[in-house]
Design a binder for these strands. Structure first.
Lengths: 157, 157
DNA sequence: TCGTCGATGTCAAAGCTTTGACATATCGGA
DNA sequence: TCCGATATGTCAAAGCTTTGACATCGACGA
């Protein structure tokens, strides 16, 4: 007769490890660990690599742009950028004509270093992609996008 | 005539934001941010909440057990556990009859605090679950599991 | 019996990330 | 014109996490 007063998880699974949130975390942790392992041999961190990849595709991105794209704060992005700058992989002007955003660009050495690690990183992504049935890839991408979009509402305001 | 010598990403997408790895990261970042926001109001961090939830389901887990389950190092798990202990939410014996593993247990206050936050956290998970078509849920869980398993090989050895 | 191996707990140091705060620069409306 | 709102870069402090190292304990095989 008593109604169940305990909060019900959206997934009434007896096993936490089968919840979406847990699997999402596990998959992301595994990807991060695999990339870390590979990048470490080349002296790069994951955020550093991501930044190089983004700058190769979109030269001139600002620190704030990159921070948003890599899901860290501006302050953290600043540290990453300075590390890459000290390593000679990117350049940033110290001043600008218009606005405050300082556009970053890969140096020749930056392009070279990126090319060095891409093969290793793409091998990791290949392992990941080949693990899922090809006909499900589109749906998977769509679902991940939906999850992110649904959660971002109310978080970013 | 020339073959393309540049490393080809497994996803020959012109847009990085459509890669599996990127979407995985984005979804996980959104989930983390949403949970952080909700838990902060109750004075808990995500690892602390995860630990409470795990201990509620599996009383007596050791620090090493919990660290593995929450994807952090033993050292980091130790910090989390001490925080919960200082807050009076869990108890750990200082010695044990057999072995070195120290089994952790929720206190009454720990159970109470967990109950307080569950409604809020489950609301976040509900938003996530409702974002994906129900008939795709099973496939999504299976795919995430496959991705994690594929990447864990060779990482953990 | 005994020694090696793996697992666990913990301390210390370094590294990365976030929170908080502040100055600067652009834009738009009063 | 001028003020407020928004965006950007940066400094400082605190917090969390990892890497590295060490001691302890049980299991297993020689």
């Amino acid at each position: 007769m008593m109604a169940d007063m305990s909060p019900q998880p959206p997934h009434p699974a007896d096993d936490i490890t089968q919840h979406v949130g847990y699997l999402l975390k596990r998959a992301q942790a595994a990807l991060r660990a695999a990339m870390d392992k590979v990048l470490r041999e080349h002296g790069l961190t994951v955020p550093q690599y991501s930044t190089l990849e983004l700058l190769a595709l979109h030269p001139g991105m600002s620190n704030a742009d990159l921070a948003r794209a890599t899901f860290v704060t501006r302050q953290s992005g600043n540290v990453v950028l300075r590390g890459l700058q000290d390593a000679g992989l990117i350049t940033r002007p110290t001043t600008t004509d218009h606005g405050r955003a300082l556009p970053a660009h890969l140096t020749d050495e930056g392009h070279a270093r990126l090319a060095e690690v891409q093969a290793a990183v793409y091998a990791v992504e290949k392992r990941m992609v080949e693990a899922i049935p090809p006909q499900r890839m589109t749906a998977l991408l769509a679902d991940l996008d939906r999850i992110a979009t649904a959660l971002e509402r109310g978080t970013t305001q």
